[in-house]
Simulated scan of single mutants.
Amino acid sequence: MTPPAADPARIWVDADACPGPVKEILFRAADRAQIAVTLVANQWLRTPSSRHVRALQVEGGPDAADDAIVARVTAGDLVVTQDIPLAARVLALGAQAIDPRGQPFTSDSIAERLSIRDFMDELRGAGVQTGGPTAFHARDRQAFAGQLDRWLARRR
């Protein structure tokens, strides 16, 4: 008897703060690679008419979208997020994670990234102006597309 086929890998998107150009890349990749892409947000999202793309709206509240992703993600899936704690949670479940600028989260780098995030939170809590993220550029879009293509090639 042959074992049942493994569930195909899926892509989960922490969509509340995901840049539009990254979503467009994911929409095209979903159809090209015939892979499920699910955008998770606590607001209604417009998605293209595609059997591979869907949106999941969750109740508002802190970490509601994160919790919904963690409840559904499986080993081998890819999560697109800027949220470092979410990335740590999905890495612990055997999924992979990248940010919208194409930077992969890894088990080797996640502890350091969490420490930096916590330190910056402490500075902001103390009233220090730390500034926000830099503007999203074409090179960020290219870096993301490159990382996504590498992940898709590995899953084939």
Rank of each mutant, 00 (worst) to 15 (best):
A71K: 09
Q34T: 10
Q43D: 12
D108Y: 00
I84V: 15
P3Q: 06
A65G: 11
T74C: 13
A65Y: 07
E112Y: 08
R54A: 15
L86I: 09
T47V: 14
P85E: 13
A33D: 05
S50T: 09
L26Y: 10
V40P: 06
V13P: 02
G132Q: 02
L91D: 09
L39C: 15
Q147P: 00
S107L: 13
M1K: 05
R72E: 12
D108G: 07
D108C: 04
W151Y: 13
G102F: 02
S107A: 10
R32C: 03
P62S: 15
L45W: 04
A5S: 12
R54S: 11
V58A: 14
R155D: 13
Q57P: 07
P133D: 11
T130W: 07
A88I: 10
D16H: 03
V40G: 07
A126D: 14
F105L: 03
E112H: 12
T74S: 14
W12G: 02
R51W: 04
F119S: 08
A36W: 06
I35R: 13
P104Y: 04
A97T: 08
D16A: 01
V79R: 13
A68P: 00
D14A: 03
H137T: 12
P21V: 05
R156E: 15
R10E: 02
L45K: 09
A135I: 03
L45H: 06
L91E: 13
Q82T: 14
T81G: 06
T81S: 14
P21Q: 12
T74P: 00
R155P: 11
L39V: 10
V80N: 13
V53C: 14
R89M: 13
L86E: 04
W12R: 05
P85Y: 01
E59Q: 15
A30H: 11
D118R: 11
D118M: 04
T2E: 07
P100K: 02
R89P: 09
T134P: 00
D14T: 01
P62W: 15
D83H: 02
Q142S: 14
L91G: 11
T81H: 10
G146D: 13
A126Y: 08
G102S: 04
P21C: 13
Q57N: 14
D83E: 08
Q103T: 07
A126V: 03
I84A: 07
P104H: 09
L93K: 15
D16Q: 02
T134K: 07
A71R: 11
S115F: 13
G125H: 01
I110C: 04
A75D: 06
D140R: 00
R72Q: 15
V70Q: 01
F27M: 07
A6I: 09
L78P: 00
D99C: 08
R139G: 11
P3I: 08
M120C: 02
V13D: 00
R150S: 10
M120E: 11
P100C: 05
Q57L: 14
A92I: 05
Q82Y: 02
R141H: 09
R89D: 14
